[in-house]
Each structure stands twice: as structure tokens, then as C-alpha cells.
Design a protein around this nucleic acid. Structure first.
Lengths: 332, 332
DNA sequence: CGGGCTACTGTGCACGTTCACAGAACGATT
DNA sequence: AATCGTTCTGTGAACGTGCACAGTAGCCCG
């Protein structure tokens, strides 16, 4: 049993293909009689438009591709993805766009993404956690395709519009809070220094501490729990009198917490601990993490909105940053 | 500047469309001279095949849709999704299939999914966390489309093939371990009773305890941390002399842990605590959770394999279950 | 030398839409 | 009565492929 086509609907409704097409796309100039008849015929036949045929002539794909950049394999245990994906799906659905997922880890992956986009199979690209210097960014810029990023792309802030939380301001909030609590020797565990969360959260930290933010009190992690553990260990060894730590993510904070506990430091009595993200893990540690909440759903929402604007023909859209909030729990 | 078509390639190579098409699809009967010429022409022109045109004639979509079932909004903070998605993308990519994501929360969402599939825009469907009685399952079965599930669909085990961990066996492992540790009054916090993880983990629990698994020692959660907290509170109130708890997920175990701590119970000294999943949260609680590891990547891998078999024309594929492993940490 | 096989190539058609255009019906205006 | 504009409808062409088919060339065999 073949799927009904627009011809079948036209026949059933007693009108022509053109009229059915007009009804389908909400064109002007369709009599109510014809409209009713076709709508009935559509319902009766169970017709559903063939996107391929449509795309072939309209040159529009009807889908958006979301590219996950993941340099090192699997290490990235980012809990943010689910929220972003969910939000993007919902938001795109209102425009009848579907979401295609792709991974851009190595050169082969990037090639695949590029082929897909070049083939005209996506109306836009949604970048996720792209690191500085990713060759895909320039490649995409070379083609003429709407692209936005969820979180800034370091070094390409003016090429790829983005929506992100106020990374720097959030870090300032946390650092200021730690200072206000009377902490004097505050260390930081940063994220990778080729991501906005890595760079800008450190900047916010330095903004508040000024020259008190010595190199000795800064260690770099890679967002993973394990890196938080070892960064904390290095910090303790170098400066045993630390009385506060700001980790650039909750997951790394959880790692730092383990190390602190193993070293016999009480949190928050001996060492105050601050995280960032307010992800699920923040509630499951003991003590629960004092952290900076970034409104992920809102960020995702904005990112998609920017992309839709570009797809609709906007020449240039302004990046947006949304404010963060200090969530005080038990670790600081 | 228009995108090059198969015509352009043919012209550049000095052959016909047919020959280019044959080269593209790896057909027999192409002379090496012609092959080389077309391959060169493809590289020169930067040609990439138009999937829409291809799909239009082959009646194949070149993509698979993954459906996330999420009855209640947002509550589902499942850390498993990312792994499954990632694995599916990778695995499908080897067959040049792309992954489209959709959500099936309410009737409108299901309608959308159905339209998409009916429109012939997917070669197969990958179900994720589908609950018992989901009308989408029967609807999909009504159409003739390959569909598999990641985790069994309760009540439709014979309709939708699946790959899953040995839920029941895993629960037995944990329960047996708790018994071996000398625990006498063991309670359980289950998942929702319309999911395989809810039902079968409880079955495994009951298998080992026999009639000692009284109703009084069983409480139901909904996978969330909060539900773990409150289930634990109810258990403590009803049976203060509990000396072990098996939570059907790590996240719920983390919630139970909070409640236990608030009630002044030491873990594992007073109460042993077991989780399930071995998700990221298992390492961030204190004490770290003793839990049952389910090999998510492997399960996802198998699920996709089953789907590919169906797409390739297999009439019927056998569901597979992969073994779990007891991970002993500090909570039991 | 004719016939059959193999290896290869080119061409017309179909896939299911949208879009531009031509034209019909009809009332209003000159 | 002729012209015009508005609203509505049908039709042919195009989008870029794959596939069936016909056809060509070369070779071997009887």
C-alpha cells in the first residue's frame, strides 16, 4: 500500500495539485470551499507531505544540526547536554524544524559534518562546547550557513553569535562571596583554557582578588571529576594554608571535595568550597555545594532564537549573555 | 554560486550521469578509467550528493529517529541519555545514517513523531525510556517501520526488540551482597512500576529475600533524587530498625543518603546503602556508592545493531541482555 | 563468420513537491 | 458594452537523483 501523494489528495478533493499545495503552505487566494474540501481529503487519505520532494525544490532542509565538539574521547561527562538538546528540540519543533545530532571529535568527524552541511541538509548549525581553534568554525564560516553557538567560541566571538551565561560576572559573585565570608587564602581550579568557562571564570576570579590572585593559587582542570581531585592535591601540597577554593564546575568541585576530605580538611570549617553550574551533582555531595547557577534552559532557548533569526534572513544578530545567581548551600 | 550536481560532475569527467551514479554507489561495471576520471571530477567540483533527491527515488530516508519519552516535564534528570546518544551517533555514522532527535511527552508530540515517520523521513526508530502503555508503541507497530528500544518496553517485549542490562540479575547481585554482609532488615526504594528498571529490579530483590521481602520494606520512587529522599523518610518512620537499603538508582540512593544522614544514621555502619547504574553521581557522594554497573555504551551499541539488522531486512531480531557488575565502594 | 557472453556506457523516466505563469470567473468601473 | 482588477484555479516545468533498459564494443567458441 503506497503512501498517498499530493495527487491523491487533489483527486479526492476534486481540485488540482496547485490548490492542495496552496492549502498546505497557507497561501492566499484559496476559496473556503476548496480549502475545506482539501482539508477533508487530507484527513481522509492520511496524507503527510514528503519533505524530500519539498526540500528538493525549495532548497530548504527543514532541519538544524547540532554539533557536539568532543576533542578527547568520552571524558566529557557534561550533564548540560540533555537540557540543551531537549530545549532545542522543543523550540525547533514550533517551526517544524527537526534536530539532527552530530559529533565533531576528529578530522573525519568534521569532514562528515561539513559534507552534511554542504549537501544542503541543514538550514543552520548549533555549536556546542566548541574549543578555541576548532577548524570547523572557520570551515563553516566559509560556507554561507547560519551558525550560532551555545557558549562563546573563544577567538571567534565576532564570527559566531552565541548565548551564554555571564561567566565572568558569575565568577565574580562567587569570589566576592568567599571574600565576604572572611576567607583570606582563596585558590581556584579552572576549566580548560581554550573554553570560555575556563578563561572567563578565571578572569572574574582575578577581577575580585586583584594581585592577591597569585599564580600559586591557580590550578587547571579539564572539567572532569578526576582533574578536580588532582588539582586540589597540587594546591594543598603547594599551599597547605588555603582556606577557600573556587572550582570552575560542580563536577570538579566534587573531585576537590574528595581530596580535601582525604587530607583531613573539613568543609566548610577549614576550607570553603564553591562550585559553578548548579548541576545535579551539586545537591548530591556532602556538604551540598554552594555554587553559581547558570540558567541552561534559558541559554539554550536564546541560542535557538538567534539561529532562527539568522535562518529567517537576519544579516547579523547580537550575542546575548544571561545573568547567573549565587546559590548558597553548605560548602561555603 | 550554485552547488554542483551530478550533471556537472559528469560533464567535468567526460562521462554520463549514469556512470557517476555508479561510481557514487559502488556499482559493478565501471571501467577504472571512468572511475578515476569521475573521482577526480568529484574532488575538483567539490560535489556532494543531494540526499533529498536520492531519498526521493530510493524511498530511503538516510536517517534514524531517536524518541525520548518524557511523560512528566523535566523531572527526568537521566544522566544516561548522553552516552546513548553519543554511541548511537557514532554507530549510525558508519552506515551514513544521521540521527534525528524527537521528544514524545504528550499527545501532540506523539502526533509529530508519527507524522515524521509516516512521511517516510526515518528508516528506523530508536525508543528510549518508554513507559508501559505508551500509545506511541502500538502506533509505530501499526505502521511498518523498524523499531527497537533501549531498555525493554513493559508489556510489549515481544513487539519491540530491545537491548538492556540484566535488571533482575543485577538486583539479585546487590541484594545477595547485602545479605552476605550480614544485613537482616533490608529495604528497597524502587523506580516507577511501569518501567523495566522499576519492576525487574524489585523482582530481583524479592528473588533473593523470598518472603522476607515484606511490603513494609518497599517504597516506590520516580528516579529523582527528591523521591529517594522522601521514600527513605517513609521507610525510616515505618521501620526504624532498617539496617540496609537498596535504591534502584544512584540518584535516588543519593537522596536516601541525605535523609539517612539527617536522621543521624551512619552509612554504612548503621545502614548499608546500595545503588544501581554506576552513574557519575555514585562517585560524588560521601561515602561513595556501592552500586551495580550497567554497561550503557554496550547496551546502546547493541540496540543500534538490532535496529540496523531490522533495517537491512531481518524479519525478527532477538532481544539481548548484557550482564551487570557489582561495584563495591564505601556505602555498603 | 555468426552468435552468445561479458563488461561497460548513455538515456528516459519516475520520485513528490513548489513555483511561475496563464487563464477563468465575476463584479465594478468607464 | 467594453475594459479592468481581483480572486481563484489548473498546468507545465524544474529540483537532483537512481534505476531499468537499450545499446556498444570486444572476445571467445563453435
Amino acid at each position: 500500500m503506497k503512501r498517498p501523494t499530493i495527487h491523491d489528495v487533489a483527486a479526492a478533493a476534486g481540485v488540482s495539485r496547485g490548490t492542495v499545495s496552496r492549502v498546505l503552505n497557507g497561501d492566499r487566494y484559496v476559496s473556503t470551499a476548496a480549502r475545506l474540501a482539501t482539508e477533508r481529503a487530507i484527513a481522509e487519505t492520511g496524507y503527510v507531505v514528503n519533505r524530500n520532494a519539498r526540500s528538493l525544490v525549495t532548497q530548504r532542509a527543514g532541519s538544524v544540526v547540532m554539533v557536539l565538539s568532543e576533542p578527547q574521547e568520552k571524558i566529557f561527562e557534561d550533564p548540560n547536554y540533555s537540557t540543551t538538546i531537549r530545549t532545542a528540540i522543543r523550540r525547533l519543533a514550533t517551526r517544524d524544524l527537526s534536530l539532527v545530532m552530530m559529533i565533531a571529535g576528529d578530522a573525519g568527524d568534521r569532514e562528515r559534518v561539513l559534507r552534511y552541511v554542504k549537501g544542503g541538509h541543514a538550514d543552520g548549525v548549533l555549536l556546542q562546547s566548541t574549543h578555541a581553534g576548532d577548524p570547523l568554525v572557520d570551515a563553516l564560516d566559509g560556507i554561507h550557513i547560519p551558525a550560532v553557538s551555545c557558549g562563546a567560541v573563544i577567538g571567534r566571538e565576532n564570527v559566531i553569535p552565541y548565548a551564554a551565561c555571564d561567566e565572568r560576572g558569575g565568577a565574580q559573585q562567587m569570589t566576592r562571596y568567599l571574600v565576604e565570608q572572611g576567607r583570606r587564602k582563596i585558590a581556584m581550579i579552572t576549566g580548560p583554557m581554550d573554553t570560555p568557562g575556563g578563561i572567563q571564570r578565571l578572569e572574574g576570579f582575578a577581577d575580585v582578588l586583584g594581585r592577591k590572585a597569585s599564580k600559586k593559587l591557580i590550578e587547571h582542570g579539564d572539567w572532569t571529576r578526576l582533574s578536580g581531585e588532582s588539582a586540589m592535591a597540587r594546591l594543598l601540597e603547594r599551599s597547605p594554608d588555603i582556606d577557600a577554593v573556587f572550582a570552575a564546575s560542580d563536577v570538579m568541585a566534587a573531585g576537590a571535595l574528595s581530596t580535601l576530605r582525604a587530607a583531613g580538611r573539613r568543609v566548610p570549617e577549614d576550607v570553603a568550597l564553591g562550585g559553578f553550574d548548579d548541576s545535579a551533582v551539586a545537591m548530591s555531595t556532602h556538604p551540598a555545594l554552594t555554587t553559581i547557577r547558570q540558567p541552561l534552559a534559558e541559554i539554550a532557548e536564546e541560542t535557538v532564537r538567534l539561529l532562527l533569526d539568522l535562518i529567517d534572513g537576519a544579516e547579523h544578530v547580537p550575542s546575548v549573555t544571561v545573568p547567573t545567581r549565587l546559590i548558597i548551600r553548605d560548602s561555603a
